[in-house]
């Protein structure tokens, strides 16, 4: 195990954990983006180049923007931010549940007889190979994902649209309204 893995893991976990505990939504969103970038670094470390860049492009480039826009569009007043009385109980419950899950998962991972790769040489997948797989074995999945993304796009637009219909074909006035200085 290399130092690089430990650093990547610590940065990713740390920024994710801090992001989940911060009050300031923008800060936590930015830290989460750092955590996603850390995951991309993990993919790069593991030799999955294409996936790493895809993760960067999708998460750091696109999802981050959607998240930040959503945060800004739903700005709350300060009063809303006040902690509700049941929040502490919920946090304790969440920590207990999360800790229990963590314990179970750690126990399972450490004790399970995991298969170890027979060959020491790492497998690498070239982009060409991936493209052929995508168009060959996984062509159906590719089509379905395309349909899913289209549906998601339309659904998101319908959900977020205000329902207020602009009259069709209205373009901003071609001629700027005359502004005359009253003198």
């Amino acid at each position: 195990m290399s130092i690089a893995f430990l650093i990547i893991a610590l940065v990713t976990l740390g920024s994710a954990a801090v992001a989940m505990s911060l009050r300031n939504l923008i800060h936590s969103a930015l830290l989460l983006i750092a955590s996603w970038a850390g995951i991309a670094a993990f993919y790069l470390w593991a030799g999955a180049e294409f996936v790493a860049f895809a993760q960067l492009l999708v998460y750091v480039g696109a999802v981050s923007m959607v998240v930040l826009f959503a945060v800004l569009l739903t700005r709350q007043s300060r009063v809303d931010m006040a902690i509700a009385p049941d929040a502490l109980r919920r946090i304790v419950a969440a920590l207990l549940a999360g800790g229990a899950t963590l314990g179970v998962l750690f126990g399972a991972v450490v004790s399970a007889p995991l298969p170890i790769a027979a060959s020491a040489t790492p497998v690498t997948v070239s982009v060409r190979q991936m493209g052929q797989e995508l168009m060959g074995t996984h062509a159906a999945a590719l089509l379905i994902v395309g349909a899913l993304l289209t549906v998601a796009l339309l659904g998101a637009i319908i959900l977020a649209s205000t329902g207020r219909e602009d009259p069709p074909g209205v373009a901003p006035p071609a001629v700027a309204p005359p502004t005359r200085k009253t003198s």
Binding site: L30, I33, F53, A54, L56, L57, V60, G61, A62, S64, M65
Partner: peptide, 8 residues
């Protein structure tokens, strides 16, 4: 992918 960071 590296260029996408500029938006941020």
């Amino acid at each position: 992918a590296a260029g996408a960071g500029t938006e941020l």
